[in-house]
Design a protein around this nucleic acid. Structure first.
Length: 640
RNA sequence: GGGCCCGUAGCUCAGCAAGGAUAGAGCGGCGGCCUUCUAAGCCGCAGGUCGGGGGUUCGAGUCCCCCCGGGCCCGCCA
């Protein structure tokens, strides 16, 4: 029978098995999973087809056409549910089903919240995402990370995985400590505006003040311009920080000192840094909450240090024999580890043989940077070290089966170093996965937290909302509060869709036009289709109890139904390829097909049995579109 | 220099994982459609050497090799 959560998928499996059986009757053993089954280019030739003739022609020493004919002759059609006919067409074999039965199976499946859902199975899957540095507000780059990670977690959950989302609060590194040092000069100030933006200004002002001590010429000019911009936006706190740092005889020493004291857990340092970072994180949580992004846990880098995870990690790496010291700084002898340990070589995509080859050519240390540091000479921990400790915490502390680290592509090498270290510490490096995504750039200028140049998620939200409120002004029958609520949700839909809908492996150039797009190929486009479906169902008083699938069958209806059927497979692809954007594309395509249907197929005014059948289809579209929107976090709306 | 990634319409992107039936959307441009379920919509027109060249194959945007162009990384930063 057909799987009620994925009828099309099970139909394809049945076809592949049927063809494999037919092939075995021709004396050829074929694995059903190797047999492609796809949609036909047009309904005239059948519903599903397979280019099996081309595939087996060589092995059977027949022409593709002959193979197709022979497969059809030896096919046990009754083993394929609801199949009405199979016909050879050049090298293809095309299958036709009893169409009303097919349509009903799909509509019924697509009307359930269980559509595309997987059985609950396996251990905890962690998705670590966002993890933005507290030194500047969440910007569009952090937004891409957050939206990718959050959406991916939603998809894993629908697929039946137990998911935990974590945020690593990076409070023990140079940038955050620098911000905290600047903050220590203005603790008497009352922060103005959104708290994380205020701290972002403190950070940038501190950094500029320090850099200006050395900068000359053009660089000096750039810094001064950045300072002016900062001053214009954030007012006197910028000057206060700037003056305090300028008068400080040794701000860099002060930062180093604060970093060491904080990592050592000294009370005075904790009071400063924790106060700063906790404030910033409150701001971050507000922003993420607006985008409907929540983390199950916030893991503080400093806790990993204070609770001994980093120290234990270092002991284990020392025990492995690949840690060296240089002026007090600990490093991992990666080149030697790669030479001697196959598991470490594999992390870098190298076989033992390839390592020997490279070594013979003297190129190993050119292909792989030969070592990396875990601590500074003063004994303080570097980011890579806390990240290795964090990985061990994920595996042994939380007990995850696997963790997907949503981290920018520019950190590829660091992630490989972390995974190599995990292997040296005796854990399976494949349990730590780098979910890589490319950066978001601004036209002309590069975003720079150091200089306070970025487009923040908050301003993006505000601007998107403003645009929607404007549009809503001439909508009749909407109260002020309704309009506000709708605008907020449309803004969220627009931003999430825009940040998600491009393949994560491709760099994107940020454009306001693209994010504020409310037309086709956008979150609001899917929301609009959803409200149209909702409107019809609302006026009809709900979905019909009974309907005749045979009343459906126009091309528009068929296209819509077949696209509904692809939801489960789309979800599986999105997960296995780490491409949450494909679900966004899917939702957009479903919305587009529904809009076409909507324009050409009146539902409420239609005669029975067409009316009920179309209502059932609308209900299935609403459900499936809603599920897809849930997965990418585009809010459902009943009216807009 | 080495490694990884990207190159499809004027612009922004799908299609490449598992090669398959005529290369698709959107934006922008031009022209149409609101007394009928929300026009944030729909329809039509114009727009393509799929970066270039080889190769594998019955078949290549998709796989392999070389080249060109762009991005990122190669820090006791994160």
């Amino acid at each position: 029978m057909l799987d009620s959560r994925d009828p099309l998928g099970s139909l394809k499996e049945h076809i592949a098995r049927g063809i494999a059986e037919a092939a075995s009757r021709l004396g050829l053993k074929v694995d059903p999973t190797e047999i492609p089954v796809q949609k036909t280019p047009s309904r005239e030739v059948g519903h599903l087809g397979s280019p099996i003739g081309f595939k087996l022609a060589g092995r059977l020493k027949m022409s593709p056409e002959e193979v197709s004919k022979n497969v059809v002759d030896r096919l046990n059609l009754s083993s394929i549910p609801i199949a009405a006919s199979a016909s050879p067409a050049r090298g293809f074999v095309n299958f036709r089903f009893d169409e009303p039965t097919l349509i009903r199976a799909i509509i019924d499946a697509a009307s359930s919240p269980e559509f595309g859902r997987g059985d609950v199975r396996g251990g905890v899957v962690m998705v670590e995402h966002t993890s933005a540095n507290p030194a500047h507000p969440l910007h569009v780059g952090s937004g891409r990370n957050a939206v990718i990670g959050d959406s991916y977690a939603r998809m894993l959950r629908h697929a039946g995985r137990r998911v935990e989302t974590h945020y690593l609060v990076n409070d023990s590194g140079n940038q955050t400590i620098l911000m905290s040092y600047g903050f220590s000069k203005v603790t008497g100030e009352k922060p103005k505006g959104k708290i994380d933006h205020w701290f972002g200004a403190v950070y940038a002002a501190t950094n500029i003040a320090i850099e200006l001590r050395r900068a000359e010429g053009e660089e000096r000019e750039r810094l001064e311009q950045a300072l002016d911009r900062l001053r214009a936006e954030h007012g006197e706190v910028v000057d206060k920080v700037f003056r305090a740092i300028r008068e400080d005889p040794d701000p860099e020493g002060g930062v180093r000192n604060l970093l060491a004291a904080y990592q050592a857990g000294e009370t005075w340092a904790k009071e400063i840094v924790r106060a700063a970072v906790e404030s910033v994180m409150e701001g971050f949580v507000d922003t993420l909450d607006r985008l409907d992004i929540k983390h199950d846990a916030y893991d503080w880098e400093s806790d990993l240090i204070w609770n001994g995870w980093t120290a234990e990690m270092l002991e284990r790496l020392k025990d492995s024999g690949y840690v060296g010291f240089e002026g007090g700084a600990a490093y991992v002898d990666l080149a030697r580890a790669i030479r001697e340990r196959e598991d470490v070589a594999r992390v870098f995509g190298l076989t033992a043989e390839r390592v020997r080859e490279l070594d013979a050519e003297g190129r190993l240390e050119e292909v792989v940077p030969p070592k990396f540091y875990l601590t500074r000479s003063d004994g303080t921990w570097l980011y890579t070290a806390t990240d290795v400790a964090y990985s061990l915490y994920k595996i042994e502390g939380v007990g995850v089966e696997v963790c997907h680290n949503v981290i920018g592509a520019e950190q590829r090498l660091e992630q490989l170093q972390v995974r190599a270290s995990v292997a040296l510490a005796g854990e399976d490096p494949d349990r730590i996965q780098h979910f890589s995504y490319e950066m978001v750039n601004l036209v002309g200028v590069a975003m720079s937290g150091r200089l306070g140049i970025y487009v923040t998620l908050d301003e993006l939200m505000d601007e998107a909302k403003r645009k929607v409120v404007e549009l809503l002004r001439d909508r009749p029958g909407l109260s002020q509060e309704e309009a506000e609520e709708i605008a907020e949700k449309v803004a969220v839909g627009a931003i999430r869709f825009a940040l998600l809908s491009v393949d994560p492996s491709k760099p994107v150039v940020f454009s306001w036009d693209r994010v504020l797009n409310l037309e086709a190929n956008s979150g609001p486009f899917t929301q609009y289709a959803y409200t149209r479906a909702s409107g019809i169902l609302r006026k009809a008083g709900g979905s019909p109890r009974e309907y005749q699938a045979a009343a459906l069958g126009t091309d528009g209806e068929y296209d819509l139904v077949m696209h509904l059927a692809e939801f489960p497979e789309t979800l599986r692809s999105a997960i296995s390829l780490r491409r949450p954007d494909v679900v966004a594309q899917y939702a957009n395509e479903l919305a587009a097909r529904f809009n076409k249907f909507y324009e050409t197929h009146p539902v409420l005014p239609a005669e029975e049995p067409t009316r009920s059948a179309r209502l059932a289809l609308v209900s299935a579209v609403r459900n499936t579109l809603g599920l897809a929107m849930d997965l990418i976090g585009v809010p459902r709306l009943e009216k807009m």
